[in-house]
Each structure stands twice: as C-alpha cells, then as structure tokens.
Design a binder for these strands. Sequence first.
DNA 1: GATACCATTTTGGGATACCAAGCTGGTATC
DNA 2: GATACCAGCTTGGTATCCCAAAATGGTATC
Lengths: 221, 221
Amino acid sequence: MSQMQSVEKQLREMILGLEIGPGEKLTERWIESRFGASRTPVRAALLRLETEGLVGRDGRGWTVSPINLAELEQIAVYREAVEVAALRLTCSLADRSGVDVIEAMLESCDSNTPREEWHRVGMDFHIELARLSGNEFLFRAVRDAMTRLSRARWLEVRDEAALARAWAEHRAILAATRLGDAEEAARRLSAHIVGSRDRLVTSLANDRRGLRARGFAVVAA
Amino acid sequence: MSQMQSVEKQLREMILGLEIGPGEKLTERWIESRFGASRTPVRAALLRLETEGLVGRDGRGWTVSPINLAELEQIAVYREAVEVAALRLTCSLADRSGVDVIEAMLESCDSNTPREEWHRVGMDFHIELARLSGNEFLFRAVRDAMTRLSRARWLEVRDEAALARAWAEHRAILAATRLGDAEEAARRLSAHIVGSRDRLVTSLANDRRGLRARGFAVVAA
DNA sequence: GATACCATTTTGGGATACCAAGCTGGTATC
DNA sequence: GATACCAGCTTGGTATCCCAAAATGGTATC
C-alpha cells in the first residue's frame, strides 16, 4: 500500500477512534513524524479527510472537526432522505436476497460481543442496506453520513436497552424490506433515524460537561 | 488568491466548459506548465476534483471523467431524493421569501440571453432552491450532483421548446412552494427531474456518434 | 512481416529545501 | 507594573529534486 493511503487510513482511524480528540489542533509536521511519512502524503491525507468532514481548516492550520450538535440534526434529515430513497428502491427490486446477509450481520452480535463491534455493525447496517439499492450515489451519501456520525455515536452513552431497541428496529426494517413492503419499511426506517437522532443529541447534550473534561470540543445546536 | 485555489478553479472551469474533453488524459506536468504552478498545488487541485467526480485515476495517471450514461441515470434518482426532501423542508418553513429571488433569477433569462447563461441559471435554480431548505447537507448534495451533470447538460442538444418547457416547470414548482403546498411541489419537482433525465439521456444517446467525433468519451448506460 | 525483448523516457509518488506570514516570548520603555 | 515592540521560531504554501515503475519506441530475432 502506498504511504499516502496508509497515512490517510491511520489518521482517519485515530480521529474516528477518538485517539485525537474533536477540536484538537493538527500540524502537518506532527503527522509527518507520527507516521514516518513526508509532507506530500500527509497533505493528500488531510485534503481527503477534509472532504469527509473529519478535519477542517482553522485559519492557517488544521483542526480535527469538533462534534457539532446542529450538524448532527441536519445529518439526520439528510440521512432520512437518502436512506429512505435507497430503501424504497431496494423494495422495488426483484432480488432482495442481500437482506439476509445483513440480517446475519445483525445476528452476529450477542452479549459477549465487544462494544466496538456493536458500534461498527450498527453503522454497517445502514451502509450495507443502502448498498442493496444498487445506486452508487445513495450508497456513498449514506456511507459519508455515517462516517460523520461515527464519533458522536462513540460518545453516546449506550445502555443495553437502547441497543436492544435499535436492533429490534433494524430487524423490523429488514422484515418489511424482505416482503417488499416499501411503505412499512420506509415508515420504520424514518422512525428509527429520528429516534436515533433524538437519543444521540439528548445524550450528548447531557454529557457535554463530561466531554469537555476529556478535552473534546462540542459545538451547540 | 493562492495558487492552489486558482489552479483548482481554472482547471475545473476548463473541464466543465469542455475545453478539456471527457476521457482526455491529464498529466500533472502538463497542468503545471499550463497554469504556471508547481506540482504541489496541482496535486491538491486534482485531489479535490477527484472527489467532485470530474477527474479520475486511470491506473497511474489522471483522466478527465467520461460522460457516463449509467451515472446520469443514477444521479437522477439521487437528485430526486435530495431535492424533493429539501423542497418539502422549505415548504414547512415560515419564511419562504427566498422563492421570489429564485423567480427573479428565472425571469432574467429571455430570448436575447446567451446560451451559457441559460445553462448556468438552469443549474442554479436547483441549487438555490435546495439552499432555501437551510439544510447544509441537502444543499451540498444538490450542488455536487448538478456539478456532475453540468457537462452532460452542455452536450445536450437544446431546442427552444425544451427550454421553455423546463422554465414553465420551474415556475410551477416555485408557485407551489410559495403556497407551501409540499405535495404539489414535490410531485412537480419529481416529474421535472425524471423528464429532464429522459431528455438528457435520449439526447446524448442519439448524439453519441457526434460526441465521439469531438473526441469525447461517452460510456454507455 | 510479426513479435519478443531491452534501453530510454516519462510519469506519478515521495522527500526536502525555501519562503512569507503569524505567533510567541521576552525586553525595553514609560 | 503595564504595554508596546521586536527577534526568533513555527507553520502552512510552494518549488524542486529524486526515485521506482510503467509506458514507449526501436531493434534483433524468428
């Protein structure tokens, strides 16, 4: 793998994994030495991560994008539009066997599954569901939206009950999709996204003090 | 303005203006000498344009993205999702006075208006309409989609009648939006996008021979 | 005449050198 | 003691150099 992709990948993982906190300043020279690469691949990585919304320019320098509550609310509206459109498209397709693969993915999580795996599968559910539509643009839109939400979802205080509810909603969406019931599937997906947004925003707003204590920048709605 | 933005902007304009044809090979060194910049800003520009879908990698090198009929059809579905969502959102807002600004924009085009102005306004109509929603993500999605469509719309063989019909549809969409009639507005916008896609794809498919004669790469649906 | 092979050139990826702008810390002045 | 100012350092932006790999073109062989 080229250094460029390597730096980009590693830096993205550090940001998404909160090893570098939201709001932290980044210098090209620090990244350079941290990953043993020169500035050329570092810049390429930063430019890419900028388009993903994970880093931004702060005057002359670079900053890891803060968690932005207003943005989270807007993303929920955006997600609803593209995910529902993708799901309706999928329901209209003859071959919806991909639903079973996603169902199996959900089933792979049980009480022994580490937290980070739940986190990943919870995002991949939406991404893979969008992929089934066969529309590259809807798929990318969902993937990018989930990437932007990723860090906030880490910060969310997840209780078992909330996770169980989310999984139940996921299964219900899949069931309706398998039957090709677009209306029902769309209704449940919309409700899931809105509910998910509410839980997320509430959780983050309540814990803002704690997050700031960890050095994480959280911008209000 | 920094060279970086300058190279990016100029190169984008050359690509969107078909001064560099779809499918043409690009070398960093050519761009470098063409714009009198060094390779660093050239690379930054290429990376950005890549995320916009205007250039792509061709093995080791760079290529101006060909016109892709399959992609155009997928974009139409994507547009319908995000534009309709934005429009419904706008209809739910109390202040929809922005509609009047867009209407004025439409009215600024008459029979004396140069073709390129019609082209620009035809795209800006959709972009500005999405902006009214206030949702940054829906807005960006529409803007990016229109950017990708831009070249194809140039190539479309536009007859006066088609333009007049499009403008009439635009006005009808605005009228419904002004009244806050989300259902009517959404219905008309959907129909407009689908019709626009059909005209575009048909036109391009019919003229593929002519386009290839101009050295433009057109990938089939 | 076609084809396999090798030398040369070209290309993008990476590294490094240099610069101007902005920030920092300290000092001198009032 | 407060403040204005300046030197030095840090930083991102740019230019240039180097390299490995891929494309190219010519040649020798069959």
